[in-house]
Every structure is written in structure tokens, then in C-alpha cells.
Design a protein around this nucleic acid. Structure first.
Lengths: 361, 361
DNA sequence: ACCTAGAATGAATGCGCTTACAAGCGCATG
DNA sequence: CATGCGCTTGTAAGCGCATTCATTCTAGGT
């Protein structure tokens, strides 16, 4: 419709200069009460809304924190429009929640952007140019690029350990410990000997660390294992998890006693596929995941997995960013390691339910 | 560290004018390939990242869609830091998911901001000034204010019917139909006669519509009911739901056969509280909710409720915004009504589980 | 009444980019 | 050889606000 009103319009209408209008919003106390009211009234009448862009440009800050993540979504799920009801949260959703919560506390808004087919450049550039600082999930964008950006604004990398000399802040979880503890549980407590690990070690440093944890536990338990996963995958999605079964079977011609997946999504996909084949979990084969997404508790049997404090990761990311933004700009890079915990549930043969559900059981 | 590079720096380094640098990013084809490479190289060497603010200011668009919502979070939940594992999605989380998904498809990023104690003005102003268009959950901000803003940018209101003459786009769900169908189910299929409705009709138009649906079904079933809810609440949180039990009991001195809550959060809170009192659901009392948040299926017994297509609401919101942004700016206001479905689960006495869970049961 | 320290306001500038508009260029046309 | 056209690139004028500095106003102080 009509052109959107600006400070100039408000200034004219209230008979002051644009500087005063600006002050009314930025620093109300520096303007005489009477003048202030006059300005606010004019603004209201005009329907004035300050331009965030102009403000940001002039003041060099936006009051926004960002989050970039890769496209985790399951292609299948995308296809089926009816999955509304089944909408379980993914990894990234939890982090969004955590960041949003913490950002709100600090008066920041949150800008979230997931990469699509479009080159990663465009993604980060888009976000980086619009926020005061941001977090990135591993593998969303090359580290070098982040290095460059982090020279001018805080960047924290989620779920990756520091690689050699990078100057980024990192937040990761105890991948090694978690996976090795879970594996130990399978071996010692359930007496399983023939395990198979499914996941790609190159996928991310996290998955790499998990696999090393698995290896360590296997060896500690006296099992002989190869130096690399029994199966590598590309995507770590449900579809891939289901597909993994075929691949495994084709290769070995028999089922191992336990399928140790590098994340929950794949494990859930496998659960599906096993049910279709008429195989019982955990009786015929044990399945475990990693992450502790809510869906892991919804499936039957509930998935034994390693819970990451995903919400907290998001919160810590924001805390870190805020800290950098308020002073500690070039303090040494931080590398946080958050603890994980093994959730022993039905899919490994432990009793189901953990007492956290409300209501009578 | 050093001052962040700008177009000027890139232009100088690559021996072109700033206009050309700009073109390289905005309209690559209009620049000779050789020149383009030169510019991109210089940009890379300098670590140049275009300023979203400046771009937005100059081009009057941001490539960002926004979402504003009120503070839905449960105070209790906030307090207990250990609820990570229990992190169930709330209403707003689902909408975020939907919007993010759709926004990504259209090449937009999503800015999310929840109101805090800070006046609502600041909230909407902050968002409105930074996005091309945005969605608002009901009751986040007064409608008049939105009216004003919607004169210059698309605004869609989620979960509220159009009020008289407002010019906003609306997306709502079939609140009336859903609640009345659920109520009918309790009366006809389960033979219940003494029901109680808990929820505030002023809370929002949605809740108002739900209550009317409840009334209609009660009357159709030959029950006599008062013209207003048996209990009004302020917050619709879990705490409030638990508290509602006391209030109800204090007032009537006895339990009704069924507690019909206006949303899931309260119903879950009630489930907790009933368990603490040693009352069995559904044997001693039936409980129902509304929304169909994932948590509703996690509790024991699973909650009978009315499922809203929350994910889809978010998606539709984005579609509407995008449509407005690409042409149909002053088409007539749209008012979408999305269908709901009743989920009959354990808390009303129907068998639990609905066949949607993967894996063997 | 006169002077002065503050407080309140205005004028002017720049933030980094987009985008008409114009200018320069090589080349086919008449 | 003058003309005109398409393709590239440069020039310059903002976009709407924050902020510095200068200016005016106000309230004490003497």
C-alpha cells in the first residue's frame, strides 16, 4: 500500500528531528518525557515499525543468533505428508529448542537455516551476514570457511571436536565413552559376542569417536573386531538403516547377535525393517542406537541408546556466543564436552520403561 | 580483529567498482566470467561476507520469514534442568518444524522469537522489522497492532478465526468439530454422563470454539451442562492441569466421570496428579486433551485427544506468506480451516496403541 | 541580572549495499 | 564512415537508522 513510514515521517509528524526519534527507541531516558510521548503517539498513528536492517547497518549488531544445520530430514518422511502425527523430533529440533530457550533468556531471537541443495556457501553467507554470532552443526560447511568467518563474529561448532588448529569454539558430547559403555553393556551384561557396527566413520568426527568407543569396548571384552565399521552408510537416515540390513545380510549371509547403529534414526529404520521380515527384537537380534531422540522411546521395543543432552547443547551454544559477544571476544577457543548416559531399554533385552513416564503404568 | 571487509575492499583488491562486486553476488550472469572470478578470488582472500543488513536495507527485502509466539513453556519444566530426556515437543515446536521445512523449500530462513516478560511491542517490532513476512500465534500480540503491521508486510495469524473486520490471513483448525466429536465419543461410545470441561474460554478463540463444540455434543447427547466451563484456568500448563483437580474436587466434592481438558498439557498434568492420588485412568476417571502433542502418546495411559495438524499449519503459513510476497499482496484475506482427527487412546478406555508404531509390538 | 554546568535537541555523516542511469566498447549495418 | 545495438562496467544516489558534535535550553549559583 502506501510507502512504509520511516523515522523521517515520524520526526516530521511529531515536530522533532530524526535523531530524537531514534533516541526515543534506543535510549528513552535521554529524551524529555513530554517529547517522548509526542513521538510515540506519532509513531503509533503512522504505524511506524523501525527497520531492523537500517538499525543493524548503523549499529553493527542485530540482536540475532543463528543456527545452521545440514538437511537431516528423512526423505521418506518428507514424502509421506501424513506423518504429522508421527512427527518425532530429530536431533536438530532438539538443538533448536535449546537454543531458542537460551536465546530468549538473553534477549536474542534465533535465525535458523538448513542447507538445501544450494551450495553451502550461500547458506552460511546468508546467516553469517545477518546475525551477531551463530552455531553450526558438524559437516554443514567446511571448517576453513568457518575459520574465516569466525575472525569477525563468534562461531560455535556443535558436535565436533576441535580439529588441530582451528580457532572455533566447540561443543561435543562424550561420544567415545557413551558408545563404549553401551557396547560394554551388550557384551558383559547380555553376554553377546557377535556384534556389527553400522555407520560411517567419515560422516563426522562424532561418528568416528563413537566407533572408536565401540572398538575399545569390544577389545576390552576380548572380541576380535575389524578396524572399521562392518558397514558404512552415506546418510544415517531411517531409509539407510533399513537398507543396511540387506547389505549386511548379503555380505555375511547371517545375522550377528547385535546391530550397533551409529545413530537412532538408522536404528529405528532397522527396527521397522526387521519387523517386516518377521524377526523379533531383542530375541532374534539386538539393536541399539545413539542420540536418544524422543522417537527412540516411542518405538516398540523402545530403543536402547546413548542419550545426548541435545537441549543442553543448544543452550550451551548460546551461552558461549553470548559470552563472546559481551567481552571475551578473543579469549582462547573453548572445547566443551558434555556427558552422555546409556538408556537401557527393550531393544537390547533390558526391561522396558524407565520410570519417567507419568501416570499409572 | 581487523575490520571486516566490505564491498569496497573487495572492489579495490580486484580492481573493479563496488557495483560489479555487488553484481557478482546478486546477478552473476551479468558479469563477464573472467571478472567474476577475479572478484570471487579477492573476496575469498579477504574473507568477505556480504552484510545482510546492508543488503536488506538497499533492496528492501530480507529473505527471512518470522514466527512470533507467546511463552508456552511450562514453568516447572523450565525449573527442572534434568528434563532433557523428557523433552517432548510443544505446540510451538511443531509449528516451527513445519515452517522451517516449508521455508527452506522456498529458499527462506526462519526467524523465531518468543515473547518474554518484555512488552509485546518490542517482540513484534523486532521481528517485523527484520523479515519479509511473519506468522503469529494467537494471543501473542494485540490484533490491532498486527493490523497496522500487515499494511506493509504479510502477516498470518495462526490458530485464530478472523475477528470481524481484521484484514489478516488466518489459519485455524476445526476446533469445534474436533471437540464435539471427541465429546460425542465419550457420551455415546463409552456411555459417560457426568463430564467436566476444564479450560478458559477467554484464553483464545480456539479454546472458545472447543468449548462450544463440547457444549453442542453434550446437548446433542441429552446432557445438561452449564453455559461455561466447569473450571477456568489461566495458563493451560501442566501445573495448572494438576492444580485443576484440587479446584474441581473442592467445588464439587466428587469426581465427574470424565475430565475434558482444553489442551494436552493440562491433561498430562492431570494424569500425573491423578496417579499421585492413586486414582486409575480410565477406570476411576476418564481424561482427554486436545492438540495431539507427541507427549500425549508418551504418557501412560496414552492420552485420548484431538490431533491438530500442527506441522501442516506451519507449512501452510509459509505457503500463504510466500504467495503474498510474490504478487498477491492485496488479495482478499484468506481464512484456512484445517481438519483435525480424534485419537482414541487409553485414557478414555479405548485400547492403547494405534498401529502407527514401528517394529513388533 | 548574569554566568555556567548539564540536559535536551538538531545537523550532519556514515553504516555496506542495490540499482537506475550513463558511459565505454566492439561490431554489424546501411 | 556514421549509426546503432548489445554487452560490461562505472557513477552516484539513496535505503533507514545510530551517533558524534555542535547548539540551544534549563536550572542553579552568586
Amino acid at each position: 500500500m502506501s510507502t512504509t513510514p520511516t523515522v523521517y515521517d515520524v520526526a516530521e509528524r511529531s515536530g522533532v528531528s530524526i535523531a530524537t526519534v531514534s533516541r526515543v527507541y534506543r535510549n528513552p531516558d535521554s529524551v524529555r518525557a513530554e517529547t517522548r510521548e509526542r513521538v510515540l503517539t506519532a509513531a503509533r498513528e503512522l504505524g511506524y515499525v523501525p527497520s531492523g536492517n537500517a538499525r543493524g547497518l548503523a549499529s553493527r549488531s542485530t540482536g540475532i543468533l543463528g543456527l545452521c544445520f545440514p538437511d537431516y530430514s528423512d526423505p521418506d518422511a518428507e514424502a509421506g505428508e501424513a506423518d504429522d502425527e508421527d512427527a518425532a523430533m530429530l536431533y536438530s529440533d532438539q538443538i533448536i529448542r535449546g537454543m531458542e530457550r537460551a536465546a530468549r533468556r538473553h534477549g536474542y531471537a534465533l535465525l535458523i537455516a538448513a542447507s538445501l541443495k544450494g551450495g553451502p556457501e550461500s547458506l552460511v553467507a546468508k546467516v553469517a551476514g545477518r546475525v551477531d554470532g551463530f552455531a553450526v552443526l558438524a559437516r554443514t560447511v567446511p571448517t576453513e570457511e568457518l575459520e574465516i568467518i569466525s575472525r569477525r563474529q563468534p562461531v560455535v561448532m556443535l558436535a565436533g571436536p576441535r580439529e588441530g588448529t582451528d580457532h572455533l569454539d566447540h561443543i561435543e558430547v562424550a561420544n567415545f565413552d557413551g558408545q563404549s559403555e553401551l557396547t560394554r553393556h551388550l557384551i558383559e551384561d547380555h553376554g553377546l559376542r557377535r556384534l556389527a557396527y553400522i555407520g560411517s566413520a567419515e560422516e563426522s568426527p562424532d561418528v568416528e569417536a563413537r566407533f572408536r568407543g565401540y572398538l575399545a569396548a569390544c577389545r576390552a571384552g576380548g572380541l576380535e573386531v575389524a578396524d572399521e565399521p562392518d558397514l558404512r552408510v552415506r546418510m544415517m537416515t531411517q531409509a539407510e538403516g533399513a537398507h543396511a540390513l540387506d547389505a549386511l545380510f548379503a555380505r555375511h549371509g547371517a545375522w550377528p547377535e547385535a546391530l550397533v547403529f551409529a545413530n537412532d534414526q538408522m536404528a529405528v529404520g532397522a527396527l521397522h525393517a526387521l519387523a517386516e521380515r518377521g524377526l523379533r527384537v531383542p530375541d532374534d537380534v539386538v539393536v541399539t542406537g545413539f542420540d536418544g531422540i524422543p522417537l527412540s522411546r516411542l518405538v516398540r521395543p523402545a530403543l536402547t541408546t546413548v542419550r545426548q543432552p541435545m537441549l543442553r547443547m543448544g543452550e550451551e551454544a548460546v551461552e558461549l556466543l553470548v559470552k563472546r559477544l559481551s567481552g571475551a571476544r578473543d579469549a582462547d577457543p573453548v572445547s566443551l564436552v558434555l556427558p552422555v548416559s546409556v538408556a537401557r531399554r527393550g531393544s537390547c533385552g533390558c526391561r522396558d520403561g524407565e520410570g519417567v513416564e507419568p501416570g499409572v503404568r
